[in-house]
Amino acid sequence: MLGILKSRLRQKHRTMLYPKGPAPQLPERFVGRPTVAANKCGDCNVCAAACPVGAITKGPDGCPRIDTGKCLFCGACERSCEGGIIKFTSEYRLAAASRDDLVVGPDSPRYMPARNDLAARLFGKSLKLRQVSAGGCNACEADSNVLCTLAWDLGRFGIDFVASPRHADGLLITGPVTRNMALALRKTYDAVPQPRIVIAVGSCAISGGPFAGLKEQNNGAAGILPVDLFIPGCPPHPLTILDGLLRFLGRVE
């Protein structure tokens, strides 16, 4: 008993101040939201060719558009672009409420709106989520789960992961939705009482990620269920996930 108390003192108080204080420090090499410079792009298309998942298309202005819902944040496009048009920043706010808002072009703002008025009103102070991994590689799962540790302490926002879909207000889905998980996902969703929300975490759950196009999966959750919040990344940093949840609920701007 005494040992437990001594250890408790040694381990100290560790819960971060964010969002009331500064956000936790991201690594220097962190790859966040990309930017596209306007008016300088030729028509070489090397960025689109370098992208392993076809996340880059050319817009009507000739500048690239990067779909962060497909993007693996590997930086291949940035390295391929001799003109320095594409740059990845350390902006961690990647989440958006609309799928179309995940596409970054030359005039995109720093981050996109994620607020859902209904969710903010109903679940702003208490959101219970059932997590469903449907082909996820355990990275998105781990970095969602890490929010429950005492450093992030998701519970202080009234957000929790629950065991039963019947106790949940919505689903948090990871993975490209494998063919073998589609039915279980559907049944889990049906077991959540209405009104309910769906959150897709990671490029797999948004678009199939690296597995997009393979026949054993469904290119993400949106083809099966209505998705209310998209949180890009491969996997998204826990701060990106937390920011997405808090902006979704109107807890931070």
């Binding site: 449907a134 082909g135 494998t178 073998n180 026949k215 054993e216």
Partner: peptide, 8 residues
Amino acid sequence: LGYQHRGI
């Protein structure tokens, strides 16, 4: 098992 099969 098999629920996570992606066909890699």
